[in-house]
């Protein structure tokens, strides 16, 4: 699988990470190297093998529907970059 600068730009947009123009070629190359490594997977015979998302066969526990949390807004917002009137502030959201 070859990967090009435009692919990296697309990924960076999806991941919301601004790329550095000076190192973009280097970034592209190193990601290409990693993908070459993971491409070794393609040789594996996985016909009929069920994908495995978790290391154990455990199943999910469910919790009772109870309100256990209390208001800690002050503590939480003390570490926030910008708040006002109890709200987190961000640059204007345009739908």
């Amino acid at each position: 699988m070859t990967i090009e600068r435009t692919d990296i730009e697309k990924l960076a947009e999806l991941a919301r990470i601004e790329l550095n123009e000076a190192t973009i070629a280097e970034t592209t190359q190193s990601i290409a190297d990693v993908l070459a490594l993971v491409d070794q997977l393609q040789a594996a015979d996985t016909e009929g093998v069920e994908p495995m998302a978790h290391p154990t066969d455990a199943v999910q526990r469910l919790r009772a529907d109870e309100v256990t949390e209390t208001n800690h807004r002050e503590a939480f917002q003390a570490i926030a970059p910008a708040t006002e009137a109890g709200l987190y502030l961000v640059p204007k959201v345009i739908d």
Binding site: E66, T68, E69, H72, F76, G86
Partner: peptide, 24 residues
């Protein structure tokens, strides 16, 4: 119409002060 949220124990009540029902 659950009392608490789907993945946390925060209340789902409508109309509270902003971010007072937002847990960690």
């Amino acid at each position: 119409a659950t009392k608490s949220k789907i993945f946390s124990g925060s209340s789902t009540a409508f109309g509270s002060e902003p971010n007072t029902q937002a847990s960690a």
